[in-house]
Write a protein that binds this DNA or RNA. Sequence first.
RNA 1: GGCCUCGUGGCGCAACUGAAUAGCGCACUGGAUUUCGGCUCCAGCGGUUAUAGGUUUGAAUCCUAUCGGGGUCACCA
Length: 600
Amino acid sequence: MHFNLRYSMNIQTLLETKVKEGFIILFETTIPSVEFQATRKDFEGDITIVIFPMLRYKKGNPVQIGGSIGKYLVENIEEVVSYNVVKGFLNLVIDDRFYLQSFYTTFNQESYGLCSDSKNVVMVEYSSPNTNKPLHLGHVRNNLLGYSVAEILKASGNKVYKTQIINDRGIHICKSMLAWKKYGNSETPESKGMKGDSFVGFYYVKFNDIYKKEINNLISDGLSEEEAKKQAPILIEAQKMLLKWEAGDPETVALWKMMNEWVYDGFKITYQNLGVNFDTLYYESDTYLLGKDVIEDGLTREVFFKKDDGSVWCDLTDEGLDEKLVLRSDGTAVYMTQDIGTAIQRVKDHSDINGMVYTVGNEQDYHFKVLFLILKKLGFSWAAQLYHLSYGMVDLPSGKMKSREGTVVDADELMQEMTDTAKNISQELGKLDGYSDDEKIDLYRMIGLGALKYFILKVDPKKRILFDPKSSVDFQGNTGPFIQYTYARIQSILRKASFKYDEPVDIAGVSLHTKEKELIKQIELYPDIIQQAAKNFSPALIANYTYDLVKEFNSFYQNVSILGETDETKKTIRVQLASKVAEIIKSAFSLLGIDVPNRM
RNA sequence: GGCCUCGUGGCGCAACUGAAUAGCGCACUGGAUUUCGGCUCCAGCGGUUAUAGGUUUGAAUCCUAUCGGGGUCACCA
């Protein structure tokens, strides 16, 4: 128990100060920093100090220098038991009791790994769908990423507002509206027994079918393809409808409201199934006129300039980019104008915000680069804290998803398929005696969605994903269900552990099994992983960490007996380790938006 | 074509942002349970990190060129 004072300081900080101190004493040289690594499995040791960078300050043989430092550390730090040097790497063996003791400093800590500060306030935007069709696989990735990053930011010490901007107006909605008006026969989602968003999406497809036919007719009448696309009567009609909407025509607005409500009813169900949510909503119909006054203001401050035809531009050539249009010659807004206005509006609505995250696919990289630059030029203090959470596309084996060509993977159907697969597997292998049918249904959903979410989130957001719905998603190896299974198995052990294990044991004289020590090391990484994941906006780091933890646990589980251990102290420690691992799995998975089962 | 981005065993992913013999899963081969849930564990097979140069004590990682994939270059959103 005599290490107590030092546990507040972690071993790495302690080592760093001692290495620096040793360097002065041994070589009369100061070094600015010390580089650490976890010792590779094939060498003896727990923590490794890399000697190479030190050679810049003290010329010499890295093995000799490493040896001197190692000797110094063993002599001056009780926790350092021994050392060995391989090439330029100084491997240190740390006392078992240190690991046990530091395990116990966090053992009873509530919400271990999470940081409760909220000095920084961030708004995270994700999803932001158009309201003319249901959500598809691409939206699924967006939603999972956005939700998870928001949760990670919270866990790492930020206050977070989750938001989305619903693209509820524009030509795409008018297309669905027009097709319904012409061919809908006053049908409703209810009368058809359809989900509202699918119902509206059906008419969007209908519109495109007719549009395509009209184009072909015009082409055979001798028009060029380009001309035909512009002159198709149904398109012209849709454009007229948009103008009517903009003019506030009561009938058009009423139709628009009705159809949007249908879509929202559908989205609500999809979001619920997906397990995502929002703190505040923005609608494009409210924001699409924003931003124009800012452009005027920017014009007087010479952030922008006006061309002869009256259009307004921002010159970004100094930044290596082009000139960018911010206001049309007729004075109307473009996408960029809206985005500028909306960003400003958000800060007005939530005055504590000092940063924003936009979850949008990487095809808009350029747009956000420009948007952020313009906001910076306009002089907003929060403009430095904007982040485009850019993610790669989700491709199918057949290639790109095209909504007009019907090759999209529908979000609702996908979730249903995953749930069905989970059901088939669980019925064969599950231990569900005594579960009611409702409980079973919940469980299948939990596993199916766990598989889907983990599959998508374990990949670095920036990378594109190839998704094969046929071969579906694995349930073995580095997968959500594998991790859920480990959790359920630990719960089974904890149910059987009919003794008290919530207090630290007396660690004097206790020595650790290698597997126990490795497990503790892995457990201790969790808080830092959360910080890294937040810094990199990457749920993938959480996912892969959790998998490593689980693998380490399973290896431990296979190598030592937990409840069968006869030494009471050891048995208690092992149950404690297991319960801590379960706690972290649950915590980490909640950051990914994945639930964990007590049995499966 | 200009700009951006990616290229790691058959397939799917890692590599703490420059360090040890490039890790893991699937698949394949062979093992492990009188034991706490075998959806587990252990081992084997398999890579010149697209190619060619360069910087560095050290490169999958940084620089240059080439090849290949994707994105983007609208008074669309």
